[in-house]
Amino acid sequence: MKRMRRGFLDSLRLYVKGGSGGMGYPRFGGVGGTGGNIYVEAKEESNLSKTLKAHPEKRWCSGSGANSRQYRILGERGKDICIPVPVGTTVRLEDQRSIGELNQVGDKILVARGGVGGSPNNQYNGQKGQAHHIILELKLIADIGLVGFPNAGKSTLLKAISNARPKIASYPFTTLKPNIGMAEFKDGRQISIADLPGLVEGSWANVGMGHKFLKHVERTKMLLFMVDINGFRLGPRYPHRSATENVVLLNKELELYSPDLVERPSVLLVNKMDSPFAEDKLKRLLEELQYIKDVCAKFPEEMCPNQFITFDEIIPCSAKENKESISYVKLRLRELLDFYDDQEKIAPELAAKKRAKTKLIETNLQLV
């Protein structure tokens, strides 16, 4: 129950059992009622924690069909049950076969069929309903997914540009569960941004947060990579990685998990530009990214991706100290999302295969 009190679950295993069919009435040829079905339905303001709270024992059983009787030749049908889940839920069987996805409010999937009622075809014996375990797996749906190693400043950025209030501290793995914030504009437009738990090297193989994080990236329209201009070191036993190495490793982790993610529209945010010598480090980073294949030749082979991400823009910023840089980030994210939405409407078949390649730009922000 500890997990339930945290208020966020992204995976839940349930036992579902359709209702049994009612007995027939041989004397009058009566037919028993069909057992109730069990459905999974996407509901507004639902989450898997609420689903668990409704049935802590994780068992959902629909109603049995009524028996046929002298004054009711056709038995009443058993009561159906709908399991409420959030939008973005995938339903699987225990062997990982997918039953379906619920991507819009009102989407409904049959997960356990009720048994047929007793009739001449089955010697008037009602049949048992389907019974098995299912797995509900939530993949967050957001416009933008924040991608970065721990302590890159993702939560600070989310707090600065949206209504989210994530936990922020100066140590790795402050974010232990996804946070979604809404960036609002004066004209009423809103953009959803998901701050996801920090990756570590090997996440594609389920190291650290592993798949628990990466599965949430799959349903975002755009990826916002964030790196610390000073690089990152997880701990004393780990090597220090420069900003360039962080970009390459993030690229590699996503490619290993799902090569399709490398094709997604992406922006690179270079954070903590208020730190000493940041401008010199930024200049070096931009030069190395222009010749990234040559730079990667010096790295161990296991670090280097087969396909490099093409960033639509590289933006230096200080999520904590510089409000002007954050305003620019917010505006550019909206412009890029609108651009790709227009591309999808004009030529969806081309947009799926080819991305517009924008020349890397250095912004003219006065970074402090």
Rank of each mutant, 00 (worst) to 15 (best):
K281V: 07
P265L: 01
V85K: 02
L102M: 06
C304P: 13
A142W: 03
K154E: 09
G202T: 13
G78K: 01
I38P: 02
M209C: 11
L199K: 09
A54E: 08
K53R: 00
K2T: 08
I229L: 05
L158K: 06
T244I: 04
E313M: 11
A131M: 15
I83Y: 03
T51L: 06
K357D: 12
F225S: 02
Y25P: 00
S49W: 00
M209S: 12
E218Q: 01
A42Y: 02
W204S: 11
A297Q: 15
N271C: 10
G78Y: 02
M1Q: 09
G208N: 11
K50P: 03
T358E: 10
H240V: 03
F28P: 00
S46N: 07
V217F: 11
G35I: 00
I38Y: 03
E324G: 09
F308D: 09
L196T: 08
F185A: 11
D294K: 13
P197S: 12
N125D: 14
I83E: 01
A297N: 14
N151L: 14
T175Q: 08
E344K: 15
I73F: 13
F28D: 00
S98Q: 14
V111T: 05
V16P: 01
Y25L: 00
F277W: 15
S62T: 06
Q290H: 14
P265T: 04
S242C: 07
S275P: 07
G129L: 10
H55N: 07
I144A: 04
D187Y: 12
A278P: 08
E302P: 00
H55V: 00
L268K: 03
Y71I: 12
S327R: 11
L256S: 05
D312A: 08
K323H: 10
A160F: 09
A351T: 10
R6S: 11
K108V: 11
S203F: 08
I326W: 09
G129I: 10
N151G: 13
V368D: 15
G65N: 01
T358S: 13
D95A: 09
G63D: 04
H216D: 07
I361D: 13
E263L: 06
P120M: 15
R69C: 10
G24K: 01
D10W: 01
G33R: 00
V368L: 15
I229Q: 04
L158S: 07
T310C: 08
R284Q: 14
H132C: 14
D274N: 15
N37G: 01
R27H: 01
R264H: 05
E245M: 04
P197H: 14
A42T: 06
L333R: 06
A319S: 15
A347W: 14
I38R: 01
E45N: 10
M4E: 05
D187L: 13
M23I: 06
A356I: 14
E245A: 03
S68C: 07
P316M: 11
P26M: 00
Q70N: 06
S266N: 03
S64F: 04
V247H: 01
K252S: 04
K272P: 03
Q343I: 12
R241V: 02
G63R: 03
Y39G: 05
N251Q: 09
